[in-house]
């Protein structure tokens, strides 16, 4: 109830914010404009429309997650709207959780709108849609949930700009964790190698959530893999959320 009240407000705030619509507009332009700009040649149309659509959903979702997420708690501390909220009979973690759920709902809306409109576009172009397309969009959403949890953690620790930079780094490294593992031979036995191996195991591997080529080619995915990715995403998000709540618990406001 209290968590939902906070979540509802967070959702309302984002939905009443113009930035969201500007981002959505850019996403729409990149999906619908790809053809108009002649990036796509006849014959490969549908595959590439699907691919570009999923890439835009991922990119714009991550932009929302980073820019809204890293200021979620910080903004409330900065603007002191927290004073009258934290002095209410609620646990501090309920506040953190409410903020998270609210932004998650915004992201769900954003991904749903983009997925459905791109799906309609594919149908209008005469293409066929497989379940894997929607599955791919859903896994992108799971990835956004993970990135949001990390952004929220940083939001209770640092300023939005620093936070956004760090989350963006996590996002980049998360898509390229392989480089930490497959190092050139000269790293063998060095301290740097050990550190990078730790990074490999700590930084979430975000390419796990990427089903773009399967979706573009309409290839089915093993359900067990999907379940595993879900567990993977939820665990990482939960850990980040717990850390965020712990960081916020003892904070002087």
């Amino acid at each position: 109830m209290r968590v939902l009240a906070i979540a509802h407000n967070t959702f309302r705030e984002s939905v009443r914010d113009k930035v969201l619509y500007v981002l959505l507009l850019f996403a729409a332009l990149s999906i619908f404009g790809a053809k108009a700009l002649g990036w796509i040649s006849v014959g490969q149309d549908i595959k590439i429309v699907k691919d570009i659509s999923l890439a835009s959903i991922s990119l714009f979702g991550v932009l929302v997650a980073i820019f809204v997420g890293t200021s979620l708690v910080y903004k409330e501390m900065d603007k002191r709207t927290l004073y009258t909220i934290i002095s209410q009979p609620l646990h501090r973690y309920e506040f953190v959780l409410g903020k998270y759920v609210g932004l998650a709902a915004v992201l769900a809306l954003v991904t749903a709108v983009m997925t459905l409109s791109s799906a309609c576009y594919v149908l209008v172009l005469g293409g066929s849609l497989e379940a894997v397309y929607f599955l791919a969009a859903f896994l992108i959403f799971m990835k956004l949930l993970l990135v949001t949890a990390f952004a929220l953690l940083l939001s209770s620790l640092s300023s939005p700009i620093l936070g956004a930079i760090i989350v963006f780094c996590l996002y980049l490294f998360g898509h390229a964790t392989g480089v930490f593992k497959d190092l050139p031979p000269q790293f063998e036995g060095t301290f740097a190698k050990q550190m990078l191996e730790v990074a490999y195991y700590v930084i979430p591997n975000l390419s796990n959530f990427d089903l773009r080529s399967e979706a573009a080619n309409g290839v089915a995915v093993n359900p067990l893999f999907v379940v595993w990715v879900l567990i993977y995403g939820v665990s990482y998000s939960a850990v980040f959320l717990l850390l965020a709540a712990a960081a916020f618990q003892e904070k002087d406001l």
């Binding site: 906070i6 914010d17 004073y83 909220i85 009979p89 609620l90």
Partner: peptide, 26 residues
């Protein structure tokens, strides 16, 4: 509690604001 300079969500109306705090109080 009334803070020194009370700040509330600017995007809400008074009615929504009181409703929100009512929910927080269960």
């Amino acid at each position: 509690y009334l803070p020194e300079q009370p700040y509330f969500y600017e995007f809400l109306t008074p009615r929504e604001t009181l409703d929100f705090y009512g929910k927080l109080r269960g």
